[in-house]
Write a protein that binds this DNA or RNA. Structure first.
Length: 428
RNA sequence: AGAGAAGUGGCAGAGUGGUCGAUUGCGGCGGUCUUGAAAACCGCUGACUGUUACAGGUCCGGGGGUUCGAAUCCCUCCUUCUCUGCCA
């Protein structure tokens, strides 16, 4: 959520930012927010003045009653009735205005960083750089949805039976590869200075609002209505919410967390021809890294996160590219996002495996996540996160890029984690 | 899940209708003293909103109510603790 003070003090910059994000009704919405804000403050003043007088009278009445002056007290009481009506009327309208203003503010996306390229679609994203080498596969190379059957390591049919589409069952070497990747990624994150955290994978409504998943992406989360809990779409939600309503001491900054969780996404309406196999799932595993920093250091922190993810892909030997997302393709909450894509050789397409973002104060404002700046004033922090990494598409790329007649050769860094170095028909 | 108790400032812990946004202790910050440190003593020390600044307003787990006036009384929800039950 954008800060109202920013809208007030930097209206032109806000409008320019919203335009870059292709937010259609910026002019009208910002004008409406500012009008509501003016009304809100006027009501607050009215309310406060009446309340102040009422408070004073109440004290006087108390004094009169103490001295036994009942008549005097009753006389004053007559005046309080009118004041009470005033404060009640003002606070009722105030609540309404505040709610309207909040609803409008919830609708406004975060403002993009200056480095965000202009553009509306994925095609407008800027390729920052590419790394690794695309393998030359034989003509009879197979996509991963064939390979997983051939080696019997991931079973969609079984998942269909016990749950439904998008919930695969990992078996044998497939299951062991999952576990290996999780451990590898967690160890790498720890070595890079992140504290490992194992959070709950159901969160309450307040947490959903804190990271901005509610109310805008309500339909994307699985919702347990009985207990009003949500299955997390990413570990970002519980990890960032650990610091909701906190004033973090300066010497505890930056906060660096890493967590592995399963992630659950309803992906309503997004199932089409190009989401075969592991390309899009309802449940998948991901290791997420989160940082909370001072405003001055957040972009340096973003760079270190970028380097960390790039290092992982390098160690896995996967060809990748880094995109700087354009204004129209960025998420609602982000100020700057880099996407990592790996080359999936048998599908001849890039697959997104990581998204690394700086949210600046957009999440922190809702979270009320602050620190004490020089001079003792509280100030909003910056929150950042990134996938490091999401497993399914990594697995897809590993399978496709490393296939040959004898099986699938795994990158060396995974050998000790897996307990085998090659996926074959023979093993299990 | 049932019965009982409780939720107050960073922590501990007073306060049961009226100058209480809150006694006190610890912790923290500043000062005096000291070569320096400790001890001792003195002062300061919650958040939000609002104002050019002051003032003012709100917040004692959340929400609602009674009253001229609520941390204090009532309702409701949540959480924690103890006992019982169940269970990996």
């Amino acid at each position: 959520m954008l800060q109202i003070s920013v809208l007030r003090d930097h209206t032109a910059a806000v409008l320019a930012g919203l335009a870059k994000k292709h937010y259609a009704t910026a002019e009208a919405d910002v004008a409406a927010v500012l009008a509501l804000d003016q009304r809100r403050r006027a009501l607050q003043t009215t309310h406060d003045a009446a309340q102040a007088e009422a408070n004073q009278l109440a004290t006087q009445i108390g004094g009169l009653l103490k001295t036994g002056d009942r008549a005097g007290a009753e006389a004053l009481k007559l005046r309080t009735a009118d004041l009470k009506q005033q404060t009640q009327a003002a606070s009722a309208e105030l609540a309404q205005v505040e709610d309207e203003q909040k609803q409008l503010l919830y609708k406004l996306p975060n403002l993009p960083h200056v480095s965000v390229p202009e553009g509306r679609h994925a095609a407008d994203n800027e390729v920052l750089r590419e790394g690794g080498e695309k393998p030359a596969l034989p003509a009879n190379a197979q996509p991963h949805w064939e390979l997983i059957k051939k080696y019997d390591i991931i079973d969609f049919e079984l998942g269909n039976k016990i749950t439904g589409a998008g919930f695969p069952v990992y078996k044998g070497q497939g299951a062991r590869l999952q576990r290996a990747l999780i451990n590898f990624f967690l160890d790498q994150a720890r070595a890079a200075g992140y504290t490992e955290v194992q959070p709950p994978i159901l969160v309450n409504e307040a947490s959903g609002y804190g990271t901005g998943n509610l109310p805008d992406k309500d339909g994307q989360m699985y919702h347990d209505l009985k207990d009003n809990l949500y299955l997390i779409p990413t570990a970002e939600v519980p990890l960032t919410n650990l610091y909701r309503d906190e004033i973090i001491p300066a010497d505890k900054l930056p906060v660096r967390l890493a967590g592995y969780t399963p992630c659950f996404r309803r992906e309503a309406g997004s199932w089409g021809a190009d989401v075969r196999g592991l390309n899009r799932l309802h449940q998948f595993d991901k290791i997420e890294i989160v940082q909370i920093t001072t405003p001055e250091t957040s972009y340096a922190a973003l760079d270190t996160m970028l380097a960390h993810v790039e290092g992982l892909l390098g160690k896995l030997g996967l060809p990748y590219r880094i995109l700087r997302l354009c204004g129209g393709d960025m998420s609602f909450t982000s100020a700057l996002t880099y996407d990592f894509e790996v080359w999936s050789a048998a599908q001849s397409r890039w697959l997104e495996v990581s998204s690394v973002s700086n949210f600046e104060t957009f999440q922190a404002n809702r979270l009320k996540c602050r620190y004490r700046a020089e001079g003792g004033k509280t100030q909003l922090l910056h929150t950042l996160n990134g996938s490091a990494l999401a497993l399914p598409r990594i697995v897809a790329a590993l399978l496709e890029n490393n296939q040959d007649e004898s099986g699938i050769a795994l990158p060396e860094v995974l050998h000790s984690y897996c307990g085998f170095d090659k996926i074959t028909n023979l093993a299990n």
